[in-house]
């Protein structure tokens, strides 16, 4: 009885999804710059986003079906991973970097802490095939998906035929991730006149503009360029960032500037997760002195007294987007996937 009911529900949903293979209207605050991603050539559509969402939460993308993208990128953590400094993958093997939060990806020119990935659509190949992350190959994932009725349906909905290819899988995963837009923080509300800062936040905002905005530029809170913010090299990891990719000494120790939105949900901080609190982050910036090698925008000493530090943190807290982390459209798609161990991780 129960089985039949599920089938009916599923096919009704499939019909619904088919009916909604329509363009997905992306919306973001007016003061955001133009996205880097070419939405004109690749408009988002509801059916592809649904397919991408299923793939994102489905551990079928890993070798032993135990790890999904969401294992390391949880919606409650603004799609970062908070339990560990450095993310855990298959067989609990430890990778070498902290999983970044995922939002406003359409505005990024390159991906990963070192910029090794040049386009959101090819990013997923990295975790899927990383021996310590999902340890799979895209060839095999495509084979596994071909044996699943669910994916036959979802691919038909998204692409009008059931052909499952690597490119289609990757584009759908990208579509879901591109829909993850965070633009409803208190800061955004203040900017569009629906809210106002407290005195403390306003003071923090001024301190932010003076000391941080050159790299963490509003309204995205990053230029998404690469910089050295003076972290000493962790000799157990010896991670030299962009330099290891470009093989140029000038790029040594440059890491992608992360956005400062949603910090409340995404500790620990920095590429190796070395700081657990914003307090530690601020202490790091004010402790920098001329002995440290840093990018130009940090060469002037940052001076913040105890009150100013509190004000700056108050401003950073106005960059949390609670509607983003609780948005039902972004969460685990219960209507498509069974709840399994891998998904709960």
């Amino acid at each position: 009885m129960k089985g039949i009911k599920t089938i009916i529900v599923l096919s009704a949903l499939a019909l619904l999804a088919f009916a909604s293979a329509t363009e997905y209207p992306i919306s973001y605050p007016k003061n955001f710059p133009a996205p880097q991603y070419n939405f004109k050539n690749n408009p988002l559509n509801n059916a592809s986003i649904t397919l991408g969402r299923a793939l994102f939460y489905d551990p079928i993308l890993s070798k032993d079906n135990s790890i999904s993208c969401a294992s390391c990128h949880s919606p409650y953590n603004a799609f970062a991973h908070t339990d560990h400094q450095i993310s855990h993958g298959i067989n609990d093997q430890i990778g070498s970097r902290n999983a970044p939060a995922l939002f406003n990806l359409a505005w990024q020119k390159s991906f990963m802490w070192d910029g090794a990935i040049n386009h959101i659509e090819v990013q997923a190949l990295a975790p899927m095939s990383h021996p310590k992350e999902m340890a799979e190959t895209i060839e095999h994932v495509v084979e596994k998906l071909k044996n699943k009725g669910l994916y036959k349906r979802l691919f038909v909905n998204a692409y009008r035929d059931s052909m499952i290819t690597g490119a289609r899988l990757l584009k759908a995963l990208a579509q879901f991730q591109l829909s993850l837009i965070s633009g409803n923080t208190k800061y955004d509300q203040v900017k569009n006149g629906q809210n106002s800062f407290t005195v403390q936040e306003q003071n923090g905002y001024q301190l932010f503009l003076k000391n941080c905005n050159s790299c963490h530029r509003e309204p995205l809170f990053s230029t998404y360029a690469f910089a050295n913010n003076g972290l000493s090299v962790d000799t157990t990891l010896n991670d030299f960032g962009k330099g290891a990719i470009s093989k140029r000494s000038a790029d040594s120790l440059l890491f992608k500037i992360p956005s400062l939105r949603n910090l409340n949900y995404s500790p620990p901080y920095m590429h190796d997760g070395r700081f657990r609190t914003l307090n530690q982050v601020i202490k790091h910036y004010i402790s920098l002195d001329s002995s440290q090698v840093v990018s130009e925008n940090l060469r002037q000493k940052i001076k913040l007294n105890a009150n100013e530090q509190i004000d700056l943190i108050a401003f950073l807290l106005a960059l949390n987007d609670s509607s983003f982390v609780s948005k039902p459209d972004f969460s685990f798609p219960k209507f498509l996937l069974p709840q399994s161990e891998g998904n709960k991780k």
Partner: peptide, 17 residues
């Protein structure tokens, strides 16, 4: 980005990391 046909990443000709 992700391209199809002979350029599909399942052809084993794409670097991943």
């Amino acid at each position: 980005g992700a391209l199809g046909g002979d350029l599909d990443p399942t052809k084993g000709m794409y670097w991943t990391w």
